[in-house]
Amino acid sequence: MLILKGIMKQEQWIEEVMNSAAGARRAEPPANFTEAFMLRINGMPEKQATIIPLKWAVAAAIVMVTLNVAVLTAYSTNAMHGGNSPHVTTANTDDYNTEVVYKY
């Protein structure tokens, strides 16, 4: 009987401990919390969208087009003078299943 009483007392104490923090969510944040948060937000480096100036964009486009033209010219000249011509293989279309079956 005494042992049972002891166990019950222990169980009761454990339950009390487990419920001791119930409702602790109602705690108020510290007074300087909002201030610290605002400081942190304001201290964050702002992300700036990088806008490329128009003249740089035009210059880059001209360079790209020139390079493309140069490559094509060099390639065709090489082909005309007996270089390796572009060799295109046509795949046997029988190997491909061109019919698409949709399952809804």
């Binding site: 009390e16 401990v17 487990m18 001791s20 923090a21 602790a24 705690a27 108020e28």
Partner: peptide, 19 residues
């Protein structure tokens, strides 16, 4: 020490938080 725990339960809450 959890700031939301009432004073009379602080000791018990301390044990709970450690566990």
């Amino acid at each position: 020490e959890h700031p939301g725990v009432v004073a009379e339960r602080k000791e018990m809450a301390g044990i709970l938080f450690r566990a």
